[in-house]
Design a protein around this nucleic acid. Structure first.
Lengths: 135, 135
DNA sequence: ATGACGATTAGACTACGTCTAATATTGGAA
DNA sequence: TTCCAATATTAGACGTAGTCTAATCGTCAT
């Protein structure tokens, strides 16, 4: 996977660089939904001179190029999600923790027939308690 | 409607006050999805000494008491929505404008059967272009 | 009237994100 | 290889949304 990273970036029209590789390495590998600051902290461990501006530039570039999705699910919580496959999201009331919900776990119908709207993408956002083991 | 405002607040366990009435009057009447600052600006026109802290206190109180819903639909855009009936949301890519989508316009199934999650509420968030007249 | 409690106020403060100007890196052309 | 232009990165200043604090004000029950 490591050696494919540069390739993955190029496929999305992103010129690879040390910093971008490091960000991609972290953010594409994790199961978490990290915030910009979490990414900053994590990548900084391997690249201590990394600047805050670069993190934001890079994350925004990735979003723009379709490599990441930007999720805004709770006040003050912007979070990034590797855009591998479509899925929905479940947010725990108590902790704010975000879980992925498989695309097929719920079914949404009639979205395409929406009068007056041309839906490019959609997702279901659910809130509540995690009733069993944390997924 | 005007004279019921105090009653509405009390029904939600909120002690009425001049400031709270003014905020409620604006935020429950509008069709917009105003941000905290929009509410601040609007209510200030009638109550010029109103402080920023009061707006946030009041809006958060209303949310906590179930009178409003807090929507976080785009980065940096927290927005308030009178919690009258359930509905979904459609966000225009170009403008960020938020439209209500009637609850019955799409159908979501299987939400209650979600393994491991106890869903308290959910909504569908859609993004795309408004294809005809702005709803 | 008085005292206690809650609401409101102004303004300092924090956190997240953007902008700017200067420097460093890259890739291509000679 | 050397040079140039274009792009990426950096540090730190800046902007903005929202929170916190301490003091003041209002309300209500006694």
């Amino acid at each position: 996977m490591r050696c494919d990273l540069a390739q993955t970036l190029k496929e999305h029209g992103i010129k690879p660089s040390v910093q971008r590789m490091a960000v991609a390495h972290y953010v594409l590998a994790t199961d978490e939904h990290p915030s910009a600051d979490q990414v900053f902290a994590a990548v900084r461990r391997t690249l201590p001179m990394l600047s805050r501006a670069t993190i934001y530039n890079t994350l925004n570039l990735f979003v723009q190029k379709g490599l990441l999705r930007e999720l805004v699910l709770a006040p003050g919580k912007v979070v990034f999600d590797p855009k591998l496959d479509r899925h929905h999201h479940f947010i725990e009331d108590a902790t704010g923790r975000i879980h992925d919900v498989p695309w097929d776990a719920v079914r949404v119908s009639k979205v395409d027939a929406l009068e007056g709207f041309d839906v490019r993408e959609y997702q279901v956002v659910m809130r509540g308690r995690a009733s069993r083991r944390a997924h």
